[in-house]
Design a protein around this nucleic acid. Structure first.
Lengths: 235, 235
DNA sequence: CGCGCTCGTGACCGGGCTGTTACCAAGTCT
DNA sequence: AGACTTGGTAACAGCCCGGTCACGAGCGCG
């Protein structure tokens, strides 16, 4: 029985690679979740029994049991939504069949923005809070998660996938300065080794599309990063 | 906001294969039903007595009692509609005989779209509320579930079974982006392990038939999937 | 038995997205 | 004011992704 209480959702993160496990734990905790981690399928099952999570983030490649077995065992005792992590190329066919119940999956390497967005989406659907309400708004700028649409002053704005992820991250943190390093970590895949110049490029793209017929929304904070906010009187 | 639901219909799912039982439970729950599962005929009868369901999804091949016996016993106490699950080749005629009362059946392997549609159909008929009103509409596109007809702007459009299932799924989720994995899971049979290229093919077919004399309705969301919606001002 | 329809796969093609580089503008320090 | 640093934008090439076509298998129907 999913708790309707206001406390942070509890997540169980299951991955055998320490780096990935750590990466996920830290940043999900930072995103406001309560996180417990496990390295093996057995540990995961044990942990889930002791302290039932609201959602499980589950790597399908585990040393002892495979992810599907773990999923089934998890559900024998209690209904719990699962976000699967899987390699891009492997198991394509098996992965199909995972999104059935409201579960979802993300391919490795992922971006943290992606993972967090999917977790929120699954939890939203599972908890049954108004089965279609994922909208964010900053000033006259609005983002609809379900339809994957962005509008400014009602006017539709077409964005590429990366542009969309970047904007979502900015909107979820509107009024807060985000460094290029933070943006790179969250929006791009964790194994991305490129220059941070790409953030500037994509900010530029977004400005073009968002601000061509309106006021400025993405402000540069020199030496620090970027901030999305409504205009002040001054600017 | 308080969900306006007058309590979701309660289903009893009876199947001895854990995978199928799990598959059905999870996805029917996700489709908005309240689900109780049972692995054997005896468990099913016991569960039904304790907590009478609105409809029973019943595999005809069970280890202890066969589905027909279960059906008969179920009805000794109370009239309840049944959706039978059966192998494609076996017992076609026997099952057919049972569907007279408003029951229905689906052959294994099924697609979830099929199962959900049949359940809704049976419940609609059984409950008698709004007799024969299963119409979905998006813009000038309408789908009549009873007549199995699709029209755009009043003009009849002939669709193959797969095309129809795909369109129904898109229409039921209009305004929401659906990934190819989701589509594959819901529209195609659960044991289908093909590439997702087939989704593209069928979307292509649908576009030909739906959009040949009208505006675009199925939009591609790059990197994500497809969305069915009315045209925006822009496009 | 064969015709035709439908389903599913593989291949090719085109376009858009991505990420880099280079150059220019603006800001900052001395 | 000059030099150096930092950010903005345009241009470009590679590539991945999706659309469509065409072919083959399976099946039902005549």
């Amino acid at each position: 029985m999913p708790t309707t209480e206001e406390s942070a959702p509890r997540l169980l993160v299951v991955d055998d690679e320490p780096n990935i496990r750590e990466l996920l734990s830290v940043s999900l905790r930072f995103s406001g979740f309560e996180v417990v981690a496990a390295a093996t399928g057995r540990d995961a099952l044990e942990s889930a029994e002791r302290d039932p999570p609201d959602l499980v983030v589950l790597d399908v490649m585990l040393p002892d049991l495979d992810g599907f077995q773990v999923a089934r065992r998890l559900r024998e005792s209690r209904q719990v939504p699962i976000l699967f992590l899987t390699a891009r190329d492997a198991l394509q066919d098996k992965v199909a069949g995972l999104t059935l119940g409201g579960d979802d999956y993300v391919t490795k390497p992922f971006s943290l923005e992606e993972v967090v967005a999917r977790i929120r989406s699954v939890l939203r659907r599972t908890r049954g809070d108004t089965p279609s309400a994922a909208r964010y708004r900053v000033g006259d700028l609005e983002l609809n998660e379900d339809a994957h649409e962005v509008r400014r002053g009602g006017r539709l704005i077409e964005l590429s996938p990366t542009e969309y992820k970047l904007l979502r991250y900015l909107m979820l943190n509107s009024g807060r300065v985000l460094s290029k390093a933070q943006i790179l970590d969250r929006v791009w895949n964790y194994d991305f080794a490129g220059q941070h110049g790409i953030v500037e490029s994509y900010v530029s793209f977004l400005r073009h599309k968002l601000e061509s017929q309106g006021s400025r929304m993405i402000y540069t904070v020199r030496g620090l990063g970027y901030i999305l906010r409504e205009p002040h009187e001054g600017d």
